[in-house]
Amino acid sequence: MEKQKVDLSLLDGVLTEYASVKGSLITILQHTQDIYGYLPKEAIELISEKTGIATSEIMGVGTFYTQFRFEPVGKYLIMLCQGTACHVNSSELILQTIKDELHIEDGQTTEDGLFSLKCVACLGCCSLSPVMMINDDTYGSLTPDKTKKILKELREAAV
């Protein structure tokens, strides 16, 4: 997917609030990702400059936590649960369905930039397993057919 030019002025508010508060690196990175959808290199450099934390350390923290991404994601970020309850209720089948439908692997984005897939461990809706979250919406009691239908609807909604 084409990377857009990064508008660093969007970070002003976050950096004014947190840059000098000790222990705030993770919070700053979370806000940064909320703004850009990922952690752009330019933003990391700016954060380093304003906080005095070395870029190597920021990368160390960023890569430690699964929440952070260094590449842009698609319009729809599919977070597919692979937690215990979902595993026991055949989440593997749902993973296979998504891979077949979208031709992407875990961590990848479709060529049209519409869908990204990320496997996660437990979304806390285990009673509805198998579960996935797409952007802010949670979908439960998935079957391969239901999954295909959801993807189809989203694809249609996007055009």
Binding site: K22, G23, T27, Q30, G60, V61, F64, A121
Partner: peptide, 25 residues
């Protein structure tokens, strides 16, 4: 409130503290 960032080991109390301080957990 501090939000975690997705690392199971941060449930361990000393790793949690490291994470609260903004480090790798």
């Amino acid at each position: 409130i501090k939000a975690g960032a997705g690392a199971f080991v941060c449930g361990e109390e000393t790793a949690l503290i490291e994470s609260l301080e903004g480090h790798r957990g």
